[in-house]
Design a protein around this nucleic acid. Sequence first.
RNA 1: GAGCCGGUAGCUCAGUCGGUAGAGCAUCGCCCUUUUAAGGCGAGGGCCCUGGGUUCGAGUCCCAGCCGGCUCACCA
Length: 493
Amino acid sequence: MDEPNEQRQQRIKKLEHLREAGVAPYGTRFEVKDRAGQLIKLHSEKTKGILEQEKISCTFAGRVVALRRFGKAGFAVLQDGSDRLQVYLKKDFLSEQTYKVAEQLDLGDWIGVTGVLFRTKTNEFTVEVHQLTFLSKALRPLPEKWHGLTDVETRYRQRYVDLIANPEVHQIFSTRSRIIAGIRTFLIERGFLEVETPMLHPIPGGAAAKPFVTHHNALGVDLYLRIAPELYLKRLVVGGFPRVFEINRNFRNEGISTIHNPEFTMLEFYVSYADYHDLIVLTEELVSSLAQQILGKTVIDYQGKEIRLTPPWRRWSYHQAILEVNSLDPSIFQDRDKAVMVARLLGVEVDPKWPLFNIVNEIFEETVEPNLQQPTIITDYPIEISPLARRKDSDPTLTDRFELYIAGREIANAFSELNDPLDQRERFEGQAIQREAGDEEAHLVDEDFLRALEYGMPPTAGEGIGIDRLIMLFTNQASIRDVMLFPQLRPEK
RNA sequence: GAGCCGGUAGCUCAGUCGGUAGAGCAUCGCCCUUUUAAGGCGAGGGCCCUGGGUUCGAGUCCCAGCCGGCUCACCA
């Protein structure tokens, strides 16, 4: 806690004055009839004359975010989450006690007002206040009106202040909410059922990542915060829900960066009887229709670059992309020594002891990914890095899988699901070998998941979309912290 | 984990060569009944991130640490 300071003391004194005058500094119910945004939308086009004629009365509440006082009158600006609206407080229009309350107002206080809409001399759309209800006292001063709150650390640690002081931040999180609501609607309209699966997993699975470990006292077992819901959602497909989705948190015990937070929001959905081609089309529809709905366009600006979300997007196979970007010939996919040499030549750091697929994948990530600025569907990933994906009929070394890249980042990962329980068991065993070779993130064998598959899972395609990264794109934010209300920071002090 | 940058009043920031810690906004007092970064006059407010060191003297120089940002590494 900060030490009490001058301004805080001053405000506590005012709070006591309010109490002495019989005004509750922390009041209760207030009947809000209007919202600033709505009033502005409905009436702010009207001329001074028309407003005088119509005498529209209104009642709304908000936080005082600006205060300009003169002798016996003053203007305050109230912010109510929908917008900001100026109110006019004039002694003549208020009871003596109410005017005294108005005189004591501080920036940050919450009040409710009833009054009549009018235009000032300078033609500002304003509420002439006739009744004022004090709602809540702020003891701490708001950041400065002109520069606002810019200190990044304070903005993240005290997001509540950031949201008060920076309307554009408020806007981003409101957009975030509308994007997620839009995704829900999109899926529900297409017959998907929203489900919730465990956050606490006895065996972390469904992704290659380091988990957080926790402990359940009564059961006396260690549990893991989930790294992905995938294996549970597929159990539900086995159970007979042909279209399910979940939007919820994943937790990965890894580094923090502008595109990584230890907890992040993931959408996963599964479609029975479909394959990954169907999901490519579905993803194009989802992303482009969301852009149209939320932003009103499908060609957007992201960090100074034009991104064309308009479908169809480029399709490019994993291997073709590597070859074309680097002008290589396909022999590197067969010959490890050659792959190592090419990696060195391209300035891609690899360990010569790595298996071939690892070296190739490193080349992909270093040379191809950064080039995928426009939406690109990369297809046909190697089987070694796709332990849950269905084998390709035409080439058993590849899988029926794609990833969507936009602005050089992985946005979605999807595949026709592996529903052959015997093949899945072999893949898990292959992962176990990788794990023994030192890959901490290789999958563990999940016997119950295998048992579920043995009951039979229909052919199904599934996809995961990193919601935070999608929101970064839609809100033109460079850092994932700016689309998460409370990004992870080191504890204060 | 490494490199670079930053941390000074509630907020946004100055602070010269090492020589008494500054401004604007906010706050307090007085004036002001249509302002909008309102205005005028006056006042108060500091753990200069923390701990060491150098020095007659450190916000400033040196060392260590803490917190944050960016880049890289890690994260397929």
